[in-house]
């Protein structure tokens, strides 16, 4: 298939960027979206042009490194799919595709489609550390965890920190990310020791990074490649208000 891409090109942080059009011919429907960009980049390199910068690592949908907004949707049109797992069969011959970086002032553009997501790392750092020296790895079932809680923790822990929630949110809020991190630890007994401090510090860190506030549009939930539920945001709201007022 033949495609026309409109890709955000920006030389460096703070520079004026713009959408630039590229035609890509003979794209196989079996290619992943990133492979399609690889093909474009090879051609750009052959012509002595600057290739399109984008991030990727595992290319199997588990690391959270990749991410770009495709026709207004983070990670593109398929639900619960990272862009590395998105395939060209989701598009049609002659399609025009607009590709933009995550947009949020807390995620400044580094170059083209690459944004700086270290704000997420700083939020996670505020989540605290395990203050007890636990020695060797404990016996698997030494601490009983009810199945419901284990499942809940696993659901939240499936967050790969890609930032699609922020990119999708009209307010660039990081609530789904923060709520998933908090929700995952709080569903387990090991996470209870520092529960109050964790919610408090992570929410404040999230605000300090300049993310927006949640207005319950729930775009994040729709965009999340792991389908993380807004349930965790509701839980975070309650936990934050209760712990900070007590």
């Amino acid at each position: 298939m033949n495609l026309r891409l409109h890709i955000w090109r920006q030389k460096e942080p703070g520079a004026q960027g713009m959408l630039k059009a590229y035609d890509v011919a003979d794209v196989s429907e079996h290619m992943s979206f990133l492979e399609m960009l690889d093909v474009l980049n090879e051609r750009l390199l052959e012509n002595g042009e600057d290739p399109v910068a984008f991030e990727h690592d595992c290319r199997e949908g588990i690391c959270g490194t990749c991410g770009m907004v495709i026709n207004g949707r983070p990670h593109g049109p398929e639900p619960k799919t990272t862009v590395c797992q998105l395939h060209m069969r989701s598009f049609h011959d002659g399609d025009s595709i607009t590709i933009e970086p995550w947009r949020a002032s807390a995620f400044p553009v580094v170059k083209d489609l690459v944004v700086d997501r270290s704000a997420f790392d700083r939020i996670v750092q505020k989540g605290g550390y395990i203050s007890v020296n636990t020695g060797n790895a404990p016996d698997g079932n030494a601490i009983p965890v009810p199945k419901v809680n284990a499942d809940l923790a696993m659901d939240a822990a499936s967050c790969i920190g890609c930032g699609a929630c922020v990119a999708a949110c009209p307010n660039a809020s990081a609530m789904l990310f923060t709520a998933a991190k908090i929700g995952h630890l709080h569903a387990l007994p090991q996470g209870h020791a520092e529960k109050g401090a964790r919610v408090y510090n992570m929410v404040l860190a999230m605000d300090d990074e300049g993310f927006g506030a949640c207005t319950n549009h729930l775009e994040c939930e729709a965009a999340c490649p792991k389908g993380i539920s807004s349930l965790f945001i509701a839980k975070l709201n309650t936990e934050f208000v209760i712990t900070s007022l007590l």
């Binding site: 207004g72 506030a213 549009h217």
Partner: peptide
């Protein structure tokens, strides 16, 4: 206060938007 904050936080949005869950009502509160 929150709306101002959100405007700053989201600064410079997309050339193409495609909302999935938000509504005209939720976006014009």
């Amino acid at each position: 206060v929150l709306a101002q904050r959100n405007r700053t936080a989201s600064g410079g949005r997309y050339a193409v938007t495609s909302y999935q869950r938000s509504t005209l009502a939720s976006r014009s509160m």
